[in-house]
Amino acid sequence: MAQLGDQTQAQLLMRDMGLTSQNIERRRQIVGLEPQDLARIAAVKDLVLGHVEELTAVFFDYLASLDESRPLLNDRVLRERARQFKREHLAAMVQSDYGPSYVEQRVELAILYGKAGLELRVFLAAFHHLLKAIGALVLKQFEQSPLGGFDHFISLKKVAFFDIGIIVDVIVFDRERVIRQQQDAIRELSTPVLQIRERLLLLPIIGVIDTHRARLITESLLKAIRANRAKVVVMDITGVATIDSKVANHLIQTVTAAKLMGAAVIVTGLSADVAQSLVALGIDLEKLNTVGDLQGGMEEAEGMLGYSVVSAGTAPAAIQT
């Protein structure tokens, strides 16, 4: 059952990382795997297949010499699975088929390394020792023509670097997961909708608006309009440095959606620079009700709702008594 769970985990991860067949094809191009490499790999296939056990031992013996790999090696279950994966890896490495199922095996192994807390530099060192051992075998077979031996080894090395690329990406992607989660949290925190008065909301937008954030802004605004039965919303974009056509489109859509829910939107804080670039872009903002600054926007909104703010000094005498 655990096996099945991990397999789906590898497939899910491949999807999240964008490891599609197209991406895999691109990775093969990047390391420069060409038909002639496949021919050379086929020529040393039997040699590698004949030494799978020995080569697996080289990898794990080297790991065993390092304290850093204890977490992996001390756990019997993880260790045995890693060994089995490595045997399968060596066999698959020389089959000349480096498509999605090969990549899935690599991802599976990387997940296992991640689980065991195997550091990247430790893995790389052990992998280097494995490659050295493979290189020694290949050169021995090509004793008569060392140059040919070198070419054959380099072809295999391309596959090795293709593999390393995947393993590194999986481990880095896993680490970045924390950063992504924090980013999501910040995004959500950074789109507050504030109620200023009965039926009046303030939506201050600061920083970069991307597609994801624009969607969040729209969502939280519409929810707040409903919850507060708001009639007027002041959207302040003083803190947005650049508005391109896509972001402008998002803003227009948000305003339109708010209108459909019965709330008028006043946009404030459009800087002179941004105004000029929007005009140059040819974006029609006629639909937007814009007011120069936040103060002006608040005054207009209060007027629309029938509030009038009076300074205490000039308040009617009746209230002063």
Partner: peptide, 17 residues
């Protein structure tokens, strides 16, 4: 100038997008 910086940033944003 500040305005030109914004115009350039917007242009870059459009072509990169």
């Amino acid at each position: 100038s500040g305005t030109d910086q914004t115009l350039l940033a917007t242009a870059i944003s459009e072509v990169a997008r």
